[in-house]
Amino acid sequence: METGRKICLLLILLSLILALLPLTSNRSFTAKPHALLAGVLSNETSLSVDQVAEYIVKEDSTIQLIDLRMPEEFRKQTIPGAVNIPYTDLISKDPDIWLGNKDTKSIFYSDNDPEQSFALVYAKGLGYNNSFVMSGGAGEWVRTIMETRFTGERITARENALFETRRRAGEMYTTLNSLPDSLKAGFLESRKFSAKKLDGGCE
């Protein structure tokens, strides 16, 4: 048999194996580049730490805080209600596991490095439009929620509500992060487990 025929046969054989493998169809970026960029750069996709704190204090179940840092950093400073999905995991696995629920707002944050913006572009590009970032990231959370104190003479009703939310969110943060390491690890593990169980659906 001549070489050309042999190569043809080999390629058909290999593609036959591929046809039998359980390959999942990869998702494509469906957003038009300049529309995607405009969407990502607009103020609507970025939430302030105060907005996030309000969601946390209200225990709003329509949001999902996603911490993109490495597990060690996440364990050291955990914002209440956040789940840890390191950035490398987010982009290397099927994001539908975490972002598939269209009614839930996914809010990304990290140490305010480009990662949270990359994650936003990635999620929005794949069509998960209910995605946001927490502007300033984890550092801004500590600065605004934990360290800012009211210094004026007269407090307005709005400021009062704002500082009350910060105080309560701060308390939740301190309580969670002052748990002994073993307890905290157990707590985070249980959250991970329940998330996994929910992902399974009716299986």
Binding site: I12, N26, F29
Partner: peptide, 25 residues
């Protein structure tokens, strides 16, 4: 958008590869 042929006709990537290889042969 950046569509792939197998996505737009609803075939799995493996099956599409097989069909294209046979067509090429």
């Amino acid at each position: 958008g950046p569509v792939k042929i197998n996505e737009s006709i609803g075939l799995s990537p493996g099956l599409f590869t097989l069909l294209l290889t046979v067509a090429a042969a």
